[in-house]
Design a binder for these strands. Sequence first.
DNA 1: CCTATTTTTTGAATCGATCCAAGTCATCCG
DNA 2: CGGATGACTTGGATCGATTCAAAAAATAGG
Lengths: 359, 359
Amino acid sequence: MASLLEGQARPIRLADIAKAAGVSHGTASNVFSRPEIVRAEVRERVKAVAEQMGYAGPDPKGRLLRAGKVNAIGVATTEPLSYFFDDPFARVMMAGISEACDATGAGIALVSAANQEKLAWNIQSALVDGFILFCIEGGSRLVDLTRERRLPFVALELGFQDETVSAIGVDNVAGARLAARHLAELGHRRFAVLSLGFADNRTGFVTPEVVRSAVYTGTRDRLAGYFEELSGFGIDTAKIPVYETENEEKSTRAGLEAIFARADPPTAILAMSDRMALIAIDWLRARGLAVPGDVSIVGFDGVPDGALSTPPLTTIAQPITEIGRRAARMILDHDGAVRRETMGVEFVVRGSTGPAPKA
Amino acid sequence: MASLLEGQARPIRLADIAKAAGVSHGTASNVFSRPEIVRAEVRERVKAVAEQMGYAGPDPKGRLLRAGKVNAIGVATTEPLSYFFDDPFARVMMAGISEACDATGAGIALVSAANQEKLAWNIQSALVDGFILFCIEGGSRLVDLTRERRLPFVALELGFQDETVSAIGVDNVAGARLAARHLAELGHRRFAVLSLGFADNRTGFVTPEVVRSAVYTGTRDRLAGYFEELSGFGIDTAKIPVYETENEEKSTRAGLEAIFARADPPTAILAMSDRMALIAIDWLRARGLAVPGDVSIVGFDGVPDGALSTPPLTTIAQPITEIGRRAARMILDHDGAVRRETMGVEFVVRGSTGPAPKA
DNA sequence: CCTATTTTTTGAATCGATCCAAGTCATCCG
DNA sequence: CGGATGACTTGGATCGATTCAAAAAATAGG
C-alpha cells in the first residue's frame, strides 16, 4: 500500500533517518539537539545518512509542541499589515520592539485583524508567546479577543481604563498641559482642538455630553489637560471648538474646514496627534495661512516626520522607542503580573509655534 | 503525586474539557473546529464546560502539527530586525508583501540573522510556510541556510547568479543605461560611479580585475549598463572612477571624498542606489556644490524619500511594491517550480539632474 | 576475569490537537 | 418487526519531534 504512494515525496522525518541509520529515534534526536552526548562515530553516521536522504533537520513544528515556547512575540493591530511599515508612530515603536527582540534572539510575528472574522482567527491562531497590542482603534475588541488566548499581552496606546490589563502609556494630562501652556504663554487666546476619538465611529464637534461619556479615556485626559491649563490663563474653555477626527486625512481636513468656517477662527491649534498636526500644517498653508505667523500648532506623539515638515512641528514627544522596548521586554520576561507603566513625555519646541498675531 | 502539583496551573487541554464534559476528545475537538456536526445540546454543554474551566480554545501549537501549515510567511535578512522599519526600500517592499498577505489572511514573521550563529538558528526554527529573502548583503549565506529548510523561498535583490533559486529582480542593465543616457544627453562628459559591492567587505576604487571577478552580478550589470551607454556617446569609460561602498553613510562619504580629490572632478554621478545618491546630495551641498548646477546625480531604486529630498532625486525606479506582492504570492501559491522574474524599471526625472555646467 | 563505574543508547511517554473508519442509536419505511 | 437511513460519537492513529528512566555497552579498577 505504501508502495503505491512511493515517489510522493513525503518529507523525511527524524524517525526515517533513525531507522535508516539503525539507531533509535531518541539517539537520532540527540544527534541534532545535543550532539555532544552522542558517540562521535554514531553521530557522524547519522549525520551522513541525514545528509544523503536530504533531511531538512528537525521540523520546528514538531519541536514546538514539545518545547512549548515559540520564541516569537506577536504584534497585533486592527489596521492592515502595511500599517506597521507606513505609519511613522508604529515604525518607531516597532524599532524599539525590534531592539528588544534582537537582543534576546526572539522573532516578531505581525498580526493584522483588519476585518472582524479574520481578526479573531488571526489572533487565535498566531504562533507566539505573547502579544503586544496596538490599540489605536477598536482597542477594546482587540483586548477582549487577545485575553481569550490566555497568553501574556501588553496594550499600547490603550485609550480606555481597564486595570486588569498590562499596559504602557504616557502621562496624557501632563503632556497636554505642556502644550497648552506653551501656546498660552505665547499670547494665544483663541484655540481649537483637533481631537482623537472619544468613542468609535464618531467625527464632528464634540459636546460636553460626548466628553462625559467618553470610552477613550486617553482622549479625555488630553482634553482635560488642555482645558485645565487654559483655564488657568483665564480662558473660557467652553468656547473652544473641539473637533473629533479619525486621525486621518479626510476627517481632519473636514475638521479644519469646520473650525475655520466659524466666526473668530483660532490662532492656535492643539492637535492630539502629530498626524493631525501635520495635516493641519499642510491645510493651513494651502489656504494661505502662515504657520506659525497666523496660526500656531502643537502636535502630540513626537514622530520623526515632525522634525522634517515645513515648518518643523512643535510637539509633545512620547518616548516611543523606549515604550516599544519595554513592551517587548514585558512579554519576553513575563512573570504573570499585570503591569502598568506611565511614561513621561518631553516637550519639543520646533517651528510650528510662535507669538499670537497682533489682533 | 499529581496532587502535589495541584495549583501549578497547568494549562487546560482539550482532553480535559472532553473528560469533564463526558465526551470523547474527538467530539470535543469537533465542538471547536466543526461545530455544525455536533448535536446542539452536546455542543452547548461542552462549550459551557470549556468556558467554566477557563479553556483558551484549541492551542495552535497542537493544531499546527496536524495541519502542517503555519499560514505565515517569513521575511529574512542579515540586518537587525529594525531594518524592516527603518530602511525606505525595505519598507516599500514590506508594504507590497503585506498587501498580498492581507489578501489571503496570512501572517508575516520577521526573521533577523544579524549574527552568524543566531542566523542559522533563527532560519532553522522559524515557524513559516516559506521565506522571502532580502539579500541586500551576505546574500549567499542567507540563501544557503534557507535552502536547508527545504521550504519554498524567493530571493529579492539577489546580487549573484544562481539559476536554482527562485528570484525576482529588475533589469539592471536597462535601468543603468537609462540613467547614463539621460546624463550624457544633458551634455555631461565627466562621470563618477558610486557602486554597490562587487564582493563582500570591500570598499574603495574598483579595478577592472575586481569587476571581472565580481560575485555580485547585479552590481556588475549596472556598471555594464552605465559603461555600454556611455561608450555609445564616445566617452572613455576606462577613465571613469568607480567607487565601491557598503551602501551606507560612512563609505559613501569616503567615496565622495576620494572622487572629488582627483583631478578633473565629475559633473555627473551615477549612484547604484538612492541611498548613496541621497547621501551624495547632502555631501555635495555641504561642500558648496550645487545640485544639479555643478553636479548632477541619478539614483537607483525609486524609494519614496527620493521625492522629498532637496532637490528631489532623479532615479531609476524599481516597481518595489509590485515585487513585494509577487514575492509573497510566489510563496503563498507555491507550486514547487523555480521561478525567476525580471521586472522592468521606470525612469523618473526629478530635480537632481540638469545640463552639464559650461566648462 | 569479575565487579563497579561511567558513557551511550533505547524506547515508551508526552506535547495538544485533528482525522477518520467504525460503531451507536434513533427514526423511518414497507 | 426487520432493515435501511441518517445523524452523531467514539477512540485509535497520526502529525514530528523531545525527554527521561532504565537498559546496555564500554571502561576502569582490583
